[in-house]
Design a protein around this nucleic acid. Structure first.
Length: 915
RNA sequence: AGGGAGUUAGCUCAGUUGGUAGAGCGCCACCCUUACAAGGUGGAUGUCGCAGGUUCGAAUCCUGUACUCCCUACCA
């Protein structure tokens, strides 16, 4: 009985909206993502790079998370005790600046609120928005073990942070020092290099004249930041610059301040730039700072923490640097110190959180010595304990590790891990402790105060691979899941995060934190630009999920992911895979509508049908599925995600839907019309028809079930939904069922045969040839044509004869014969050659169509085959080719030539008859 | 400036150890054929950036070169 398929569960179009939420609930309810700390299964662990707790998911996260989820789901189904640990980051500077801005809008200043109240406000903010990003991750389908959700300010993680800090401090690897750092005058904190954004700015180049102390002349220096002259402590020239040989060592008088500064010589100076003399401000420029250290120059800080000029500079004091610049230029112009002003474009670092110009600022900070930590981390990558995929990124990693600088770990923020250092007000004793001290350990005074700074966010991130597993406690989770298997992240944070995790993992757990580092590209827009809020080209993945569903988004992303290169996102691709979801949906819908469900429901998912009862199409699709199972597992184990997607797409759409379902239709529809003429060739009597229908129904669902399993890691929602509906399966839930492999499908796959593949291939080609003749000659589908198929070998004849009814139906034939005909005039001819088999496809055109189109078609075919003949015969004439090429290749080419020549003659004959 | 990567169909990209160039989208034509028009069938499209070299044979290996992009640094 043909089933009614207007069931609302099987709408004509797949609607992810009603499916996805329901399925995710079910996964959670059944604890499908839960990992065991103790298990007999081998472990597989991935730690999620924690996104900003109050942030939004962006498309980059969607890519990053989908890769992890694909791996996790694949491994979970492959029998591993799989854990994917989710977490969120407090994102110190980011979150603090957002909340600060928000409060400012309400007229509340952070500084007025005070530390304690402000931090409380941030916690409120976190409580309000903390769930949002988790919800977004769930919309995407992330199969994380949510019971293990960790926040970087959780008690356990905080304990880990303290322990690490104290330990490194005691090893004298953490020290306090006065250095030049990037500074945000708005946030009044040191910021990391990653938080500095360089932008091209149209500025001016000011040429200033500094007079010599002895009055014998003046030296012109060029600067883009004239206000920094207040802090100049030297002017430098190149030691080999002939113009200035006599000047080196002399003293200049700094205008305005009247301070005396020396002329020094340094190789850093570019003789060709400006006047070849450069003013040196060690406290406000990184190069000048280095030079200052080299020449032992005084470092004069002229800025307050908020970026204004310090006291003692008269009318300039208290001005912001831009205002100070204006004022100083006025003064210098009036006194003719400025000789010239020209336009000058240069790039200027800005604070990425607030947009203000970042100032190099001399301040006292905490630093972590890196060289000792770096060396084992270098070794472990060199010897392959941890390897990068793609391998190339190890170069980037090495380059940074080998040139590593000490890390400024302190931030003048309130939101974050407070530095566990206290100073005794009475005896200046410094206490560094894991637990908050109540009194000075030296003088017992209770008058102790904690360092006001917090740690750089990346400090806690660096501990993530083990702090999430309970370290410093000696937990079972740590034993089972450390080191984790794969770290998945973008190449933009190899330095800031990956390298630091490597170092801390090795330092505190004596083992690498992960065995494989999979680096993916960054997502760009369709024009190749970075996605950013300011460009307005960033895409909210949740918006896309609303439109096309999470599955379509996930598989679209994965289809584009191959080499670790950056990828351009296009919504065309999204549509392609939205359609693909619909195709899968409808293929299943067809199966339900056409197969013998009552029969299928009684049979086992792994039941193997005897070969005699299988149609060649059944054998063929099983054979193809075997190939796909093998390739997809292979692709996944090599992180070739796009290859896996293309393999699955081609199988499901082209093999399964385009051919297998179409081939199966006559059989599946057979009981509906038992007297249908076509079925008589397939089955001799009604009994056989029913048996064949049952068998095909079974293979249909067995194949579909396995295909759903194979696709599940990429498109978890729709596959779970459809799997749930299947009349047969080997597991209640797809997510926790077994991923197909050649091994676990060994018996079932014996139903497939290579010969079946060849047979079906022949039929496909004959059908395609007939369709081509029809199409190219514009023969309408309503017009039945006569076809004469002339096989050149017995095997082909047998195959074609057996499938006569099917060929008639597929190609809308009025008549089909297999005997060669004497009169071939006015016929369309297509000679087919494929591995041993050979068939001439002939369609009489007399009285049906104008033969001009056919002449065109044949000429085109002749042209093509002539090219082949030329190429092959030239190749085979070449003695060196015969001599050097492998024998089998020469043999293949000889056969190809033979076939091409036969083809050519047949086509030429037919052309002669036509014209 | 140093390091890395790319250049293949109109677009986005595949192309494993050298052996007659592939996919998806788009395009053209014809079809509402009882799973799907988010569909079906057929078709067109490439001097593989350029120039050399190695080889019987190069998109693939080597050298040079042009252009693009990314990272780090710098831009007085």
């Amino acid at each position: 009985m043909l089933q009614e398929i207007s069931d609302t569960n099987f709408a004509k179009q797949y609607n992810p909206q009603i499916v996805e939420a329901k399925i995710y609930e079910k996964w959670l309810a059944k604890n499908c993502f839960k990992a065991e700390d103790v298990s007999s299964k081998p472990p597989f662990a991935i730690i999620l790079p924690p996104p900003n707790v109050t942030g939004f998911l962006h498309l980059g996260h969607a890519l990053d998370h989908t890769i992890q989820d694909v791996l996790v789901r694949w491994k979970r189904m492959s029998g591993f005790n799989t854990v994917w640990i989710p977490g969120t980051d407090h994102a110190g500077i980011s979150t603090q600046s957002v909340v600060e801005k928000k409060l400012a809008q309400e007229g509340i200043l952070r500084t007025e609120l005070g530390r304690e109240k402000f931090v409380a406000k941030v916690w409120e903010w976190k409580e309000q928005y903390g769930d949002r990003i988790v919800n977004q991750m769930q919309r995407l389908g992330n199969s994380c073990d949510w019971d293990r959700l960790t926040f970087t300010l959780d008690e356990g993680v905080s304990k880990a942070v303290r322990k690490v800090f104290v330990s490194l401090y005691e090893k004298k690897m953490i020290y306090r020092g006065m250095k030049l750092v990037n500074w945000s005058p708005k946030l009044e904190t040191a910021i990391s290099d990653i938080e500095v954004e360089y932008k091209d700015v149209k500025g001016k180049l000011y040429h200033l004249a500094y007079p010599l102390e002895d009055g014998s002349g003046e030296l012109i220096v060029a600067t883009t930041r004239p206000e920094t002259m207040l802090g100049d402590t030297a002017v430098a020239v190149h030691p080999e610059d002939l113009r200035y040989q006599a000047w080196i060592g002399k003293m200049l008088v700094l205008p305005i301040t009247g301070r005396k500064i020396p002329i020094i010589a340094d190789n850093y100076v570019d003789q060709t730039f400006g006047s070849g003399a450069v003013k040196i401000t060690p406290a406000h420029d990184f190069n000048d700072y280095e030079m200052g250290l080299r020449h032992n120059l005084p470092m004069i800080n002229i800025l307050n923490t908020n970026g204004t000029i310090t006291a003692g500079y008269g009318e300039f004091s208290g001005l912001k640097s831009q205002e100070a610049r204006k004022k100083i230029v006025e003064v210098l112009e009036a006194s003719a110190v400025i000789k010239n002003i020209e336009n000058h474009a240069h790039s200027v670092g800005h604070c990425s959180k607030t947009g203000v110009i970042a100032e190099p600022f001399l301040s006292e900070q905490w630093f972590l010595k890196m060289s000792e930590l770096a060396s084992p981390a270098i070794t472990q990558v060199e010897n392959g304990t941890t390897n990068f995929i793609p391998e190339n990124w190890s170069k980037t990693y090495m380059h940074w590790m080998q040139n590593i600088q000490d890390w400024c770990i302190s931030r003048q923020l309130w939101w974050g891990h407070r530095i566990p250092v206290w100073t005794c007000k009475d005896c200046t004793h410094v206490i560094v402790s894991e637990i908050d001290p109540t009194h000075c350990s030296k003088c017992n005074s209770k008058n102790i105060i904690q360092d006001p700074d917090v740690l750089d966010t990346w400090f806690s991130s660096a501990l993530w691979p083990f702090s999430t597993l309970g370290w410093p406690n000696d937990t079972q989770a740590l034993k089972t899941f450390y080191p984790s298997d794969v770290l998945v992240t973008g190449h933009d944070i190899i330095f800031f995060w990956v390298a630091r995790m490597m170092m801390q993992g090795l330092e505190f757990n004596k083992d690498v934190p992960f065995k494989t580092i999979y680096i993916h590209g960054l997502i760009r827009d369709s024009q190749g630009r970075k996605m950013s809020k300011s460009l307005g080209n960033s895409i909210d993945p949740v918006e896309m999920i609303d439109q096309v569903g999470a599955d379509a988004l996930r598989i679209a992303l994965m289809s584009q992911l191959n080499t670790g290169k950056d990828l351009k996102f296009s919504d065309q691709r999204l549509e392609t895979y939205r359609n693909f979801m619909n195709k899968i949906w409808n293929a299943t819908r067809f199966a339900f509508g056409s197969a013998d469900l009552d029969y299928v429901a009684k049979i086992d998912f792994n039941h193997t049908t005897a070969s005699a009862n299988l149609s060649v199409f059944d054998k063929w699709i099983v054979y193809r599925l075997g190939e796909v199972i093998d390739r997809v597992n292979d692709c996944l184990s090599q992180y070739k995600f796009s290859d896996a997607v293309h393999e699955l797409y081609a199988f499901l759409w082209h093999d399964f839907c385009d051919w297998y379902l179409e081939f199966s239709k006559p059989t599946l529809y057979a009981t509906e019309e038992p007297n249908l003429k076509q079925t008589s060739a397939v089955a001799q009597n009604n009994h056989d028809t029913i048996t064949q229908r049952q068998t095909t129904s079974l293979i249909l669902f067995q194949t579909l079930g396995r295909a759903l399993k194979l696709m599940h890691p990429f498109i978890p929602f729709i596959t779970e939904e459809l799997f749930e509906k299947l009349p047969i399966k080997d597991s209640e839930m797809l997510v926790t069922s077994t991923y197909p492999t050649l091994k676990n499908n060994q018996d079932w796959l014996t139903m497939g045969h290579q010969e079946a593949w060849q047979e079906v291939e022949l039929l496909k080609q004959v059908i395609t040839a007939l369709r081509n003749i029809r199409g190219e000659n514009s023969i309408p589908l309503g017009l039945e044509i006569a076809a004469n198929l002339v096989p050149q070998d017995k095997k082909s004849l047998a195959i074609l004869t057996q499938h006569k009814a099917l060929l008639i139906k597929f190609c809308k034939l009025g008549e089909l014969s297999f005997e060669p005909r004497p009169n071939l005039a006015k016929c369309a001819v297509t000679p087919l050659q494929l591995s041993g088999a050979s068939v001439n496809v002939i369609v009489p055109l007399e009285g049906i169509v104008d033969i001009d189109e056919e002449i065109k078609r044949i000429k085109k075919a002749i042209e093509k085959v002539s090219k082949d003949i030329n190429l092959l015969s030239n190749k085979l004439k070449n003695e060196n080719f015969i001599k050097n090429a492998p024998e089998d290749l020469v043999e293949i080419d000889k056969n190809l030539l033979k076939e091409a020549e036969i083809k050519f003659r047949t086509l030429q004959d037919s052309l002669n008859r036509l014209s």
